Amino acid sequence: MKRGRARWIPALAVSAAVAAAVTGVVCARTVSGPAAAPAQGLAVGSTLPAAKPAAVRGNQPHAYPLQAPLVAAAARAFADEGQWRVLVADSRGVPVVQGTMLRAAGTSSPVAIAWIKESAARFELHPGYSQPGGSWSQPDMVPRDRRDGLVATWNGGFLMGDSGGGFYLGGKQYGPLVPGVAAEVFRSDGSFTVGVWGRDVTLGPDIVGVRQQRRLMIDGGRIAGDIDSLFTWGVTDGGATYVRRSGVGVTADGDVVFALGPTMSPRSLATALQQAGAVRAMELDINISWPSFMAYDSSADPGDPRPFKWGDYPRAAERYFSHSARDFVAVYARATGSQGECVDAGGVARWRPGGDAPGQAMAC
């Protein structure tokens, strides 16, 4: 299967930090250039160099705009809060994955935000050998021959027995797909969304993957009314309110936003996702061992990109290059045709789900 090859713009590097005693803000020296070390557990206030315009189509430089800042300069809790940086660009220099840092609501802790251009990416659901377990059409890791074009991975959700829903992949199902339960949904054209099962999405021939869990934290752009009910959002280590949490959502334009922080309440996570533009969002996993988000540097070897962490968590960046006990999501740069149009796995031009007319190809 041909995948669009991703190219990392070397715009992500942080050196040792100096903590501010009262606020917990950490400042870091910026390092730029190909030898820059990727961030490993970014702290509040970590600064990143500005993204450089990518040279594509010969020597013609093109500067692609980043997302609008999430925080006004006068309201920032630390330097560059809410300002986006390129994490991964595709072969034409278009930013596919962007990242920023926010202050988690109710704490002085950082929360890492990733934004993925949905139309430029292809999303895959992978099972874990323990959760849900069994034999599936996808492997429980990203093997060496499946890494070309890989741009991001993120963790799955709760143990299936605690999820309140089911898991569906390639025509096979584990547990029932329960109406009203929140779901990550994967289509055969590589697109992805988050919604309420039975309301926003139902099972059809175009659905190849579903991962359900509890209920939406954000629906219609509004945070759930019971967001402060800890029982609703999972059992935490020691019953603590503020633990490591991750979540994923979609914006009004259909793009994907992901949030991960080391010290977050359900409200902290929902607020971060809402601030990032999510109109529908769900919690994924919680507690110290499970949340993670990796982007991938293909500058040295496009067929075997090097993973680097985005956010603060203890798991290795290479986590999904080995067999995984839990399910996870892998994201690839979408392949493009000779005219620059997006194409699906079968080589057919892809149009925006919902019925854009031919001739209005999706931007890649």
Rank of each mutant, 00 (worst) to 15 (best):
V185A: 14
Q360D: 12
D356T: 15
A183R: 03
A278Y: 04
V151N: 02
I116W: 03
R211V: 05
G41Q: 09
R147W: 07
T107D: 12
V94G: 00
Q40E: 11
W290D: 14
G355Q: 08
P143A: 00
G133S: 15
T107M: 07
T193E: 13
R76N: 11
R222G: 00
M264P: 05
L87C: 09
P305S: 04
S163I: 06
A259S: 09
V178H: 01
A68I: 01
V185D: 08
G340Q: 07
V86H: 03
G221V: 06
A74G: 10
D344N: 15
R187C: 08
G239F: 08
D344G: 15
F192E: 02
L203T: 10
R103E: 10
A278M: 05
T271A: 12
D162Q: 15
I223V: 15
G238C: 09
G277W: 02
F167Y: 15
G128F: 01
V185E: 11
P262W: 02
C342V: 11
P314F: 03
L12P: 00
A240L: 15
V25N: 13
L177W: 06
Y129K: 01
R147I: 07
R3L: 12
S324F: 03
V25G: 02
G303Y: 02
Y168G: 09
D255H: 09
S265G: 10
P53M: 04
G225R: 13
R214Y: 06
G190Q: 07
G128E: 06
V178L: 08
A16V: 13
A276Q: 05
M160P: 09
D80Q: 15
Q275W: 02
A73N: 05
P179D: 10
T263S: 13
M160W: 11
D90C: 08
V22G: 11
V329G: 04
D162V: 10
F321C: 00
A345Y: 05
A259P: 13
V181N: 01
D327E: 15
I9S: 14
G247Y: 03
R92V: 03
V348R: 12
P314W: 01
A73L: 13
L273T: 11
W233C: 05
V181F: 02
A112H: 03
P179R: 04
G4S: 10
P358T: 01
T47G: 03
G58I: 04
S119R: 10
H126T: 05
F321A: 07
R211P: 02
E124T: 13
E184T: 07
A79Q: 12
L12D: 12
Y332K: 04
L269H: 04
W84P: 14
L169C: 08
M141P: 00
W351G: 10
A114R: 07
G180Q: 07
A79G: 04
P139H: 06
P69K: 00
W154V: 02
T263H: 10
K117I: 00
V18G: 07
R57E: 10
G303T: 04
G33E: 10
D327I: 00
V178D: 04
A357D: 13
A104L: 08
G354Y: 09
T236H: 11
K2P: 15
V181M: 01
L125F: 12
G340S: 10
H323Q: 14
A39I: 15
V94N: 06
G93H: 08
I227W: 01
Y242S: 09
D189I: 11
P49I: 03
F123W: 15
P53S: 06
V194L: 04
